[in-house]
Design a protein around this nucleic acid. Sequence first.
DNA 1: CGATTTTTGGTCACTCTGACTCTAAGCCCG
DNA 2: CGGGCTTAGAGTCAGAGTGACCAAAAATCG
Lengths: 240, 240
Amino acid sequence: MNSAVVPDAPRMAVSVTVDLVIFTVRDEALHVLLVRRGKEPFLGRSALPGGYVRPDENLDAAALRELSEETGVDGRELRLAQLRAYGDPGRDPRGRVITVAYLALGPDLPDPVAGTDAADAVWVPVERALSPGFGLSFDHGRILSDAVEEARSRLEYTTVAADFCREPFTVSDLRRVYEVIWGTALDPSNFRRKVLRTAGFVEPTGERRAAEAGRPAALYRFGGATELYPPLLRSGDVVR
Amino acid sequence: MNSAVVPDAPRMAVSVTVDLVIFTVRDEALHVLLVRRGKEPFLGRSALPGGYVRPDENLDAAALRELSEETGVDGRELRLAQLRAYGDPGRDPRGRVITVAYLALGPDLPDPVAGTDAADAVWVPVERALSPGFGLSFDHGRILSDAVEEARSRLEYTTVAADFCREPFTVSDLRRVYEVIWGTALDPSNFRRKVLRTAGFVEPTGERRAAEAGRPAALYRFGGATELYPPLLRSGDVVR
DNA sequence: CGATTTTTGGTCACTCTGACTCTAAGCCCG
DNA sequence: CGGGCTTAGAGTCAGAGTGACCAAAAATCG
């Protein structure tokens, strides 16, 4: 098959990029992984990690590569999932650039090591990244907003919350993920009941962990289920 | 701002298209709107309606335009929503083409009028379109499969089922939408209770419609709510 | 040791759901 | 015209799940 372009249709000067929204929970707040841009446009400003898709690379592979190159994070242990595509004309001053945004949730990852390509990757509280004065590049503020809403929703119907927790973890660790991302307080007892009765969400390791205060908590590992059925709905609660 | 392309990054020869999955319920079966291709590649084969995004057009606008041009359907009355992007190298023999797929559900629309651009648009039962011998173009089989699963899921958490019904409609009309798309039988009485008690799903018109058989059913119109809370979950039922 | 903190177990009332029964109101057909 | 058929719609009942509580267990801190 001839891989050259067949001149049979209106073509346009267009590029395709991938952008990644990587979340983690740190210090009781949702953080997003951002890089400082090293070139124009938006030189020196913060942006989501991402970059051009290469000619022989599928979108998922491009996302993994850019994540690794720009931040040093190995995305293979993350569940990267497509968020959606953004393609308004004018969203990128370099020309027509369509981007495919990916979303993943990770445990509290180590700070990027200086001296590598990833030297300029940092964890930023989402609240700060979205504040008006912060000045995210391109339309990354919009993408980040959409990603937050998507993450909130996924917590309801899937077990992704466990992705935020390094194993082994406690039920309280898991609960704090929900509380931070939803911005609501959950009843510890009811939450525990729900998690433990959902087949495949967590399984006990038999160990316990002594905390700074209070009774030591039992430790669990992820149970392998991806769907959460019935879902864990955030009800009308509005706290904070 | 110079809208010419800044030569600062690896570019690739790439095009962006939109493809549309438009569903309707007809004759107790889920149908999808397909067109017969008038050019290479896949000349004469069936495909999802869609085409190239123009330089100054955002993705949503491109989807609306292609839908109208190729099928004569006015998408403004449909709730078009992005499904996801597909960009594997090799998915299009013309070169590197990334497509953004859209999904919408419509009431039983009139057959396309011959003599227009839309002459070759037809409603095809999804089951047939997905059968091995049917030969959808490109990776449209994959896209269609994903769209079916997405539609099934959206019925659970949103009120999109009403998009399938031309107003005014009966509760049974609405139930048939669920039954056809999920492929399960639902209890008429329980379904009615759920729909009527969900604020904003439907509102009564006060009229009744005499059916071919049985007691005349009360007529309703859509109530404006988009979310369905609590959701209407397809439980473990597996029928058909 | 007592105060404090966090985990963990339990109760209770309420809602929602699925399965089911029964009545209402039309049409068809003999 | 009246019985049979069909679909709409009302209601009942038991069980699952949830939110709001209460209370005990097991650690640390002073």
